[in-house]
């Protein structure tokens, strides 16, 4: 099971006082990782931002990533994989 599927998302913004939530706002927040918290499915603990090491071709880099304080699983958003991580790999690789 991938780390992604083991996480259960929770919308972090509180509902408006009148109790009516803007559906568009919910859907926007759901797509924006920075605006929601993630719960580890196995441990039911909220993921926390922590310095995380990545090793590739003998070099180690770090970035702040969401990690489960219980089992240590890290959530890596697809946007990061296809963005900065891929860019680091490309820069590290020889011809």
């Amino acid at each position: 099971m991938s780390p992604l599927s083991r996480c259960k998302e929770v919308i972090s913004s509180s509902p408006p006082e009148n109790g009516i939530r803007d559906r568009n706002e919910i859907s926007r927040n759901a797509l924006d990782i920075s605006k929601r918290s993630l719960i580890c499915h196995a441990c039911q603990l909220e993921l926390q931002s922590q310095k995380t090491d990545f090793t590739y071709l003998g070099h180690t880099f770090y970035a702040d990533m969401l990690r489960c304080p219980g089992c240590g699983q890290v959530f890596i958003p697809e946007s990061l994989v296809k963005g900065r991580i891929q860019e680091v790999e490309m820069q590290m690789e020889d011809k």
């Binding site: 990545f54 180690t60 880099f61 770090y62 970035a63 900065r84 991580i85 860019e87 680091v88 820069q91």
Partner: peptide, 15 residues
């Protein structure tokens, strides 16, 4: 330079 963003900036500017 072990910070991912710092490395990415530096490798482009100072490769």
């Amino acid at each position: 330079l072990r910070h991912m963003d710092t490395f990415l900036g530096r490798v482009k500017s100072h490769g």
